[in-house]
């Protein structure tokens, strides 16, 4: 493992994602991008699916990216970067390029779990040498907080509004990290910006594999989560400590938990500060809150079993 993973050493590196971007105050996504790029010690080319990150980091004539960066449509960030990677391999073979370049695709949960899912799945199956990073904020935040398949059970969004008829989203989120693991790719991992060292180690590790890699990174959104601008790191910590967002990796099909919380906190601790779950604390919705906790526990136990048996 490469050294230099201290904040002091990292701070001496150049930020390849600059200030002046127009993400909301307190957004989790730029922190995720910054950490991913800081952990990458290679020249990088990135593609970016439509989403908050894409529209606010490159508004005509102003780009926050100091790397070659391609805006793609919602559904094809993975297809675009796999095309670039293929061209790179061809140029390398022809002797026209000799640099070692890494390829990263960034997408939000809408562009990854839903709309870009087919191109992501295809790129993973074709085996391109690339890393796909999903910054998961749990809904279509850019267009006004519509539900996505990453939206957690019970969350209030504009397309599953909590009220007299339904208590927010009635379906559970899909487990994309495991779905990507099931593609039998060399490396799939889940990370959180609160645990920056874990996140960066995973990025570094991912770059050392040849082939398709996937990382799912939690990115709190204070607008959509109806929380405060200052709590993105606190909330991501609570997400990890409640096992709502466990930190693990799937390396060649073998699951390994990279962080086990010392004291597992109730998932309600993670949900309470968020307005999107406010209704779950009303007596009438107690059953749903209980169900959320049961599902988190069930998934965590399943993950632990997978890690124990090395499968």
């Amino acid at each position: 493992m490469a050294t230099g993973l201290t904040l002091k050493e990292l701070s001496k590196k150049e930020d390849r994602f600059t200030h002046g971007h127009r993400m909301c105050s307190g957004c989790g996504a730029p922190t995720v991008v910054k950490m991913v790029l800081l952990a990458t010690d290679y020249p990088v080319i990135a593609s970016n699916a439509t989403g908050c990150l894409e529209v606010s980091s490159c508004i005509s004539e102003y780009t926050a990216w100091k790397i070659p960066w391609i805006h793609t449509a919602f559904e094809n960030a993975a297809a675009t970067i796999s095309g670039v990677e293929t061209m790179y391999r061809s140029l390398k073979k022809q002797g026209k390029i000799d640099k070692d370049i890494k390829f990263i695709a960034f997408g939000g949960d809408g562009g990854t779990y839903d709309i870009g899912f087919q191109s992501l799945s295809g790129a993973m199956e074709r085996g391109h040498d690339m890393l796909y990073v999903c910054y998961d904020n749990g809904a279509y935040m850019n267009t006004g907080i519509q539900r996505s398949s990453a939206t957690p059970l019970g969350a209030d969004t504009t397309t599953c509004p909590a009220g007299d008829v339904i208590p927010g989203k009635l379906r559970s989120r899909k487990n994309l990290t495991k779905i990507m693991g099931a593609h039998n790719i060399p490396y799939a991992a889940q990370a959180s910006p609160s645990h920056w060292m874990d996140l960066m180690k995973k990025v570094k590790k991912a770059h050392e594999f040849i082939g398709p890699k996937f990382m799912n990174i939690l990115a709190p959104c204070n607008r959509g989560w109806r929380s405060q601008t200052n709590d993105s790191i606190t909330l991501s910590k609570l997400a990890v400590n409640s096992c709502y967002w466990p930190l693990y990796e799937i390396e060649d099909g073998v699951t390994k938990i990279t962080y086990t919380p010392k004291d597992k906190v109730p998932v309600a601790d993670f949900m309470k500060p968020q307005g999107r779950f406010k209704h779950l604390f009303a007596p009438a919705n107690e059953w749903l809150l209980k169900k959320v906790q049961e599902e988190v526990d069930k998934e965590w136990e399943k993950l632990k079993k997978q890690a124990e048996c090395g499968c």
């Binding site: 600059t18 002046g20 980091s57 004539e61 102003y62």
Partner: peptide, 19 residues
Amino acid sequence: GSVVLEGGSAVNFKTGSWR
């Protein structure tokens, strides 16, 4: 293609006034 040729040009856009 409205390609932005200068990387990191967002530094010319100051966001401090949002505070």
